[in-house]
Simulated assay, not measured.
Amino acid sequence: MQTTVSRLASHKNSANLDIRLRFSSAYPVWRAIIVDREQVHVSVFLPGRRGIEADQYSMKKPEEQIAHAVIKSYQLAWKQAQEVAL
């Protein structure tokens, strides 16, 4: 994890990006990529398997109720997680 934190900090500084990082003690259920708070790409974490081995679903928030739920779940988890300085 420390290597990932270091890489993110390096990218943030070298490219002047707004990168924010938080850690949570809760085990993740979803792997989600949310683009512009609208487009959602989501998959689940399967027991004993790598994250990339699960099917990925893509949807838009206005069109799919599940996209809205994934975004709300992410926002709640983010709010409760501990911020890490980069």
Rank of each mutant, 00 (worst) to 15 (best):
T3Q: 13
M1S: 11
Q65F: 05
P47S: 03
I66K: 13
E83N: 03
K72E: 15
D36F: 06
A32E: 05
T4S: 10
R31D: 14
T4M: 11
Y27T: 13
Y57N: 03
N13A: 12
M1D: 07
Q75G: 03
A67C: 03
M1P: 03
K12N: 03
A32F: 05
R49N: 10
A69F: 11
T4P: 02
M1W: 06
F45N: 13
A85G: 02
N13G: 10
Q80A: 13
R49H: 14
I66S: 11
W30R: 11
R20Q: 12
P62F: 06
S6C: 07
F45K: 08
E53Q: 14
S10W: 11
L46M: 14
K12T: 00
K12L: 02
Y74H: 15
A9K: 10
Q82H: 04
K72Y: 06
N16S: 07
H68F: 12
L21I: 12
V40S: 00
A26T: 08
L17C: 00
N16E: 05
E38A: 11
F45Y: 15
T3F: 07
L86P: 00
E38S: 13
H41E: 10
K79L: 10
A85F: 04
P28R: 05
V84P: 01
Q39L: 15
H68N: 14
S25Y: 02
E83K: 10
E53N: 08
V35F: 08
E64D: 15
E53A: 11
Q65T: 09
S58Q: 14
A26R: 10
A54R: 04
K12R: 09
L8G: 00
S6N: 14
Y27K: 13
R37E: 15
A81C: 02
T4K: 08
A9W: 00
R50Q: 14
S10N: 12
M1C: 05
G48M: 05
M59V: 02
A32G: 09
K60C: 06
R37I: 01
W78F: 04
I52Y: 15
I66E: 10
E63R: 07
D36Q: 12
A85Q: 13
D36R: 13
F45Q: 06
V42S: 01
R31T: 07
H68I: 06
W30E: 09
Y57P: 00
R31V: 04
P62V: 05
D36C: 09
G51F: 09
V84S: 01
K61V: 08
L8E: 00
P28Q: 06
E63Q: 11
V44S: 14
A69G: 04
A85H: 08
K61Y: 01
R22G: 00
S24Q: 06
H11A: 12
K72W: 05
Q80F: 04
R50T: 14
V42Y: 05
D36E: 15
L17R: 03
L86S: 02
S25K: 11
A32I: 07
D36T: 07
L46H: 12
R7S: 12
G48L: 03
